[in-house]
């Protein structure tokens, strides 16, 4: 597949669009369909397309496995950290109202951070799973 010019050029054009769309889904999830879970999967799909067209070796060079391991945990820590922060601010665990002066602002900030954590972990886990399977029989 790596020698097919049509695939390579189309992939190069379409991958940035996929990643941009994933970011739109991530940050527009409050107002339309979307959110961290969908955005994470779509973001990972961009990387998976890169891995399918250019080979898993190229994907492994683009995102080093050490970084992936770190990012998998980062999203969960961000989510749990929002909860810990609201507790430190004197409210209940994951009660976002404490994050800002007014309830709505706090909710917006809290939901934004939590969805970001979901998106980060989901995309990193999906890319990791793909690399683990597709890179298994690399020469």
């Amino acid at each position: 597949m790596r020698d097919n010019p049509v695939l390579r050029i189309v992939a190069k054009i379409i991958i940035p669009v996929i990643l941009l769309f994933a970011l739109y889904v991530q940050f527009h999830g409050d107002f339309g369909p979307g959110g961290g879970f969908q955005a994470g999967v779509i973001f990972a799909a961009g990387f998976i397309l890169y891995g399918l067209v250019f080979g898993t070796e190229a994907l492994r060079n683009a995102i080093p496995p050490g970084l992936l391991r770190f990012v998998i945990a980062l999203g969960l820590v961000l989510y749990a950290g929002v909860g810990a922060t609201t507790m430190l601010l004197g409210s209940d665990y994951l009660a976002y109202g404490a994050l800002a002066d007014d309830l709505i602002g706090g909710q917006h900030l809290g939901i934004f951070l939590v969805e970001l954590g979901v998106g980060i972990t989901v995309s990193a886990v999906t890319v990791t799973i793909f690399l683990a399977f597709a890179g298994r029989n690399d020469p």
Binding site: G32, L103, Q107, I111
Partner: peptide, 9 residues
């Protein structure tokens, strides 16, 4: 309570 139109989110 949340100011978000998408109830699922």
């Amino acid at each position: 309570q949340t100011g978000i139109p998408n109830v699922v989110t």
